[in-house]
Write a protein that binds this DNA or RNA. Structure first.
Length: 1120
RNA sequence: AGGCGCUUAGCGCAGCGGUAGCGCAGCAGCUUUACACGCUGUUGGUCGGGGGUUCGAAUCCCUCAGCGCCUACCA
């Protein structure tokens, strides 16, 4: 680094070091290492995707975590890979082929040929995003790169399918699914986005067959589905219509049907909202989810009138047949008008589900699909730490008891409000039982059934101190335990969650709760013996039975508190934690997952059906796309006609494989362990599973995070892995969403999404990383502004030049600092470094990366460069002036040598703190400055990547070098003083380049160097030290702790500006004094306030009074 | 409709019970020998409105308003 350029040029540096790291295998993870493991799996990007700002944010965070962990001495695995992204990829390839005119439909090529083309596409575009990640500096272990359609990975997917099938969790069924008429596939609920659509609400009347002349009016947004109606529903409680239940109406469409086929029944169903529309609902079981369920309840027929492509079929009648569903809507409305049935049409806006990928309205459609009942739901739900969980450990302390014992009044205008307030209070303070309002609206603490319900729903398992389960619940609990996948009422689910939570405590894993124990009374979790105490005897002994339900008084509750404490479940943490609530909510209402997709690109379902010849010679194989039969129940195959297995059946010719593939997420959810060699117990799994952190966006919390947790429990929880916990990761960091300056989402159509590669080319990868991280506070969306990247670039340049400055002082790296020669500024910067390291550690502990960058920015720029470097010139400059030649050795001047040693000390720490954020420039300077030479080969000698993360300075260090808070305080007040001195110049209207003479009247003794620093930082011609100086007229003056500083104006400059400034100062002082005095004069203030605060205020008053006196004196000095 | 979050200087944010702060932008002045991708100084705020608790509120509570996100959706 002898000829170091004036500006940092990232382009020449970045590739060089990335290649170096790769060649030296710096990113590869060794499962045999004795170091503790740190692991993270990349959220696999779409294999054919390109890097977006979202990826930049996400992967920068992961890289920061990985690099920090390496410096902490961990064996780091950052496992990269890509996702085959079924629908997205297939759609892109299909579009491209159609665009080139090669095909009109994928059927033109056929499955095999089409897949060939997708693989070709993958080969061509698949590597792009990986290369881009490398540009960003991502330190992934590329030797372990995985793709979700790698042969081994595919095997994992099939194995899991087969396993879940055998467990009875995967079933095939004819259900209402979200059908995409463009992609021609079913979608999961998560792949459907709701959008507001303007349309019409059509009111049409139908005649009641049994009461000619009587009409019912129905409101609908979808008249085209009338031919599919098989009933009309009203709410049985609706007095207007209840009388008609059981009668029939004439369905107006299709018109050509004979009379008897137009008759459909009027049914009563609670689902009907009598406030909406007319209160009469047409029921189309084949094309609406809710209607389907009504149909199930009333055993209605299902008539499909819309085909897979969104066109009306024969059943829709002659008028609509062959029409597109939207066109058909208009035609149907016209038809109704013709029939005199349409009463009115009003504009109406409603939410319609859209296919996320194809961006067209989905069509609820009956079809045969594969479904999964999620496994390990209870464990997965309970393992994520919820808000307030952290209170659990302290719940047995006084705080928890006081809440109850004090019986604090909580008010509310009505019962509902009262309950809300009570719950909020309980949540905040820890509770025993749950505050509950009784018949007189008085608050009481109730232990019992109601409290349980509230406790579970509102406070979360971890905060519950005592739980008494009553018989009614107990039966439910047993039921749900034996039927884990049955839908259950909310109360039962809560109980179940509680039990799951108990089981998470290892000692409880095998505790069985018998029906008798439940039924006999109460079940308790006894914190002391860490057991559920059966039979409820322990509780009965302390609490008379009648108190349980009726007299829940605080005193009773306290007794329980002494005996029993809550369950503390803190396994996995979300950052920010509020996402845990979202997760919990979704897990509570979890629905079976439709896992089959009518696509070709993906993992083909490992199910084969025996070919059966019909009379016509055609193969009789269930094909979901052509099924129109109305059998809603799941289809059971005799074992001889279905084969489910990883391997195809023998006599393959007699079998036909299911044509469908699996949802992409059905492979992604295995990512944390399928990438590590599962189902074998590999070295990698042993060492690196569970992973430490996961970094992802909150938008895939359901798609991916939740499912990975469930898969983790289901598959890594097996005894053979011997894991204390099966969860796939310990922390989940949710990034914000990147938006543009105006707060809009980045999108291709808006063109507001910059290409990260352009930004890297323009500013450097480090600049992009730093700029992004600096503007990305935990838990908030990020407004992207190129200015941030520019700032990152400037920052790198500043760092570059700060190091350049050190280089220009010459000499070898100075390792030894001699306490004898430390200046005040040296001590100060060392103490500031200590603070910075501590702040960094705190920021990392809380995943607050923007705080970390703020600390780096402040310490390096505002403290090190602006103050320390400038002050150090007082020491360095004098020697430099006398020995400008290159050969001049700092050794000739021990003061200079020592200051350089401090600079080297600070910079070598600083570069390491920068490294996770700025990997390239920190590495370049690490070597360029020669800091690598002092380090052991494997700890920074070869690369800064493995240099140890700086530790805060310990007391030993501080004692050795005589660092104390007083040193810090001294420089800080000195700096304020200098700022005021500079302000004097400014107020005297002196141009910055004009050298003037200051007079300094020290308050105590002052080191010579401190005076020199003063001169330098004030840009003064000289600072004369005159202990007895008496300012005359027209002398500007400021006062600080170390003394007074004067600037004689010698009649050169007008003093008005300074007068104005001083006047303002006087006013400010007076205002502050008034404020403080007002407080101090308040008798209750002095009485009630803690003494330290009182002292602080008194001290403040003295300070402001002194300042005021000084300002007034200065004003007088100017001739007032 | 429910849930969550946000509202502090022109913009982006921090502070979360004890003298209102940071960065950017703005303004003024500087080729001060590391850096103009820089240096120095500096102007901007009754902390969304209202009420309450407190000796003391940007900070805690209630309430209203606006913005955003998520979940669920009524045909």
């Amino acid at each position: 680094m002898s000829e170091i350029s004036k500006a940092y040029e990232p382009q020449s540096v970045e590739d060089k070091w990335y290649d170096f790291w790769l060649k030296q295998n710096c990113f590869t993870a060794d499962p045999k290492s004795s170091k503790p493991a740190y692991s993270i799996v990349i959220p696999p990007p779409n294999v054919t995707g390109v890097l977006t700002m979202g990826h930049v944010l996400n992967n920068t965070i992961q890289d920061i975590l990985a690099r920090k962990a390496r410096m902490d001495g961990k064996e780091v695995l950052w496992l990269p890979g890509t996702d085959h992204a079924g629908i997205a990829t297939q759609t892109v390839v299909e579009k491209t082929l159609k665009k080139s005119g090669e095909i009109r439909h994928r059927d033109d090529l056929g499955r095999e040929k089409f897949l060939e083309r997708v693989w070709q596409w993958k080969e061509k575009h698949g590597g792009i995003i990986i290369q881009q990640l490398k540009k960003l500096g991502a330190s992934c272990d590329w030797t372990r790169e995985r793709f979700t359609m790698d042969p081994e990975y595919s095997r994992c997917v099939q194995r899991v399918f087969v396993d879940l099938y055998k467990k009875g969790l995967i079933y095939r069924g004819k259900r209402m699914v979200n059908w995409c008429p463009v992609s021609l596939t079913a979608l999961s609920d998560e792949e459907v986005v709701m959008k507001e659509q303007k349309g019409s609400l059509y009111y049409f009347k139908v005649e009641i067959a049994e009461a000619p002349g009587t009409f019912l009016t129905i409101a609908t947004t979808r008249p085209e589905t009338i031919p599919g109606d098989t009933a009309v529903a009203v709410n049985p409680k609706d007095p207007r219509y209840a009388q008609y239940i059981g009668k029939h109406v004439m369905r107006p469409l299709p018109t050509e049907l004979p009379h008897e086929q137009k008759l459909i029944p009027i049914i009563g169903d609670e689902h009907v909202d009598f406030e909406f529309g007319t209160g009469v609902l047409k029921v189309t079981p084949a094309h609406d989810k809710a209607d389907f369920e009504i149909g199930q309840r009333h055993k209605l027929a299902q008539i499909e009138v819309i085909d897979a492509t969104g066109q009306m079929n024969d059943a829709a009648g002659a008028d609509l047949r062959g029409l597109d569903r939207f066109k058909a809507r208009k035609v149907a409305a016209e038809k109704l008008t013709e029939l005199g049935s349409l009463e009115k049409e009003e504009p109406y806006t409603n939410n319609v589900g859209f296919s996320e990928r194809a961006d067209v309205p989905i069509e609820p459609r009956l079809s045969e699909q594969w479904f999964l009942k999620y496994p390990s739901v209870e464990m997965s739900k309970a393992c994520v730490a919820q808000d307030g969980d952290k209170m659990a450990p302290g719940l047995t302390d006084k705080k928890a008891r006081i809440v109850v014992a004090t019986g604090k009044e909580i008010s509310g205008r009505n019962i509902r409000e009262l309950r809300k307030a009570a719950l909020a209070y309980a949540r905040k303070n820890g509770i025993i039982g749950v505050p509950f309002e009784n018949e007189d609206s008085k608050l009481e603490i109730r232990v019992g059934r109601q409290s349980l319900s509230h406790a579970f729903s509102n406070i979360g398992v971890a905060n519950i101190l005592a739980v008494c389960v009553l018989p009614e619940l107990i039966r439910s609990a047993i039921w749900i335990s034996s039927e884990p996948h049955q839908p259950a009422n909310p109360m039962v689910k809560r109980v179940h969650r509680f039990i799951a939570a108990l089981r998470l405590e290892k000692t409880l894993h095998s505790v069985l709760i018998t029906a008798k124990e439940f039924y006999d009374g109460t079940v308790l979790y006894d914190h002391k013996i860490k057991k559920i105490t059966p039979g409820g005897k322990s509780l009965e002994a302390h609490l008379p039975k009648e108190k349980l339900d009726t007299q829940p008084a605080p005193s009773a509750a306290i007794k329980i508190c002494d005996l029993v404490a809550g369950v503390n479940v803190q396994k996995m943490h979300f950052h920010p934690q509020r996402w845990a609530k979202v997760y919990d909510h979704w897990m509570s209402g979890i629905q079976d997952w439709c896992i089959s997709r009518q696509l070709w690109w993906g993992h083909r379902i490992p199910v084969w059906y025996r070919k059966n010849k019909n009379e016509d010679g055609k193969l009789k194989i269930e094909n979901s796309r052509q099924t129109t039969t109305a059998n809603p129940s799941s289809i059971l195959y005799p074992p001889s006609s279905i084969h489910v297995g990883v391997e195809p059946p023998v006599n393959a010719a007699e079998w036909e494989q299911d044509p469908d593939v699996l949802d992409t997420w059905f492979s992604s959810w295995l990512w944390p362990f399928a990438t590590m060699g599962w189902p074998e117990q590999t070295e990698t799994l042993k060492k690196f599973y569970p992973t430490t952190d996961l970094v992802t966006g909150p938008d895939i919390i359901f798609f991916w995070v939740a499912r990975m947790i469930m898969a983790g429990y289901e598959y890594m929880g097996e005894p053979k892995f011997g894991l204390p916990d099966a969860l796939p990761f310990r922390n989940v960091y949710f990034t914000g969403i990147i938006r543009d300056k105006q707060g809009r989402k980045m999108s291709k159509s808006l063109g507001n999404s910059p290409d990260p590669l352009d930004l890297i080319a323009k500013y450097g990868a480090d600049a992009l990383r730093f700029g992004t991280m600096r503007s990305a506070p935990l838990g908030q969306d990020i407004l992207f502004d190129e200015q941030n990247v520019e700032l990152g670039r400037n920052f790198c340049n500043k760092l570059w030049n700060a190091c350049r400055f050190r280089q220009m002082q010459g000499g070898e790296v100075q390792g030894e600092i001699d306490p004898k020669f430390l200046t005040s500024d040296d001590k100060w910067i060392l103490l500031r470094l200590d603070t910075a390291i501590r702040e960094m550690d705190a920021a990392f502990a809380g995943y607050r990366f923007s705080d970390a960058t703020a600390t780096l920015y402040r310490f390096f720029w505002s403290e090190y460069c602006d103050w320390y470097i400038e002050a150090s010139k007082a020491v360095l400059g004098s020697a430099a002036a006398s020995a400008a030649s290159v050969s001049a050795s700092p050794a000739e001047n021990p003061n200079k040598q020592n200051t350089i040693a401090v600079i080297d000390f600070v910079l070598s720490h600083l570069l390491r703190m920068f490294h996770p954020f700025l990997p390239f420039i920190s590495e370049e300077l690490w070597h360029g400055m020669g800091y690598s030479q002092d380090m052991p080969e494997k700890q920074g000698g070869k690369t800064i990547m493995f240099a140890p993360w700086p530790k805060p300075l310990d007391d030993d260090f501080k004692n050795t070098y005589g660092l104390s808070v007083a040193d810090e305080k001294f420089i800080e007040t000195r700096n304020e003083f200098i700022a005021q001195g500079r302000n004097l110049r400014r107020n005297a209207n002196l141009p910055a380049n004009k050298k003037v003479k200051f007079i300094f009247k020290p308050a105590g003794k002052t080191a010579a160097n401190d005076i020199e620093v003063l001169k330098l930082l004030l840009n003064a011609e000289a600072v004369e030290v005159t202990p007895n100086y008496q300012p005359g007229k027209n002398v500007l003056a400021v006062r600080g702790e170390s003394g007074e500083l004067f600037l004689p104006l010698e009649g050169l400059i007008d003093v008005e500006a300074e007068k104005v400034r001083l006047q303002k100062e006087v006013e400010k002082c007076q205002a502050e004094i008034t404020k403080v005095e007002a407080k101090l004069n308040n008798p209750s203030f002095a009485q009630k306030v803690p003494t330290n605060v009182l002292e602080e205020h008194k001290q403040r008053l003295v300070e402001w009074q002194a300042k005021l006196a000084h300002a007034k004196a200065a004003l007088d000095g100017l001739g007032n």
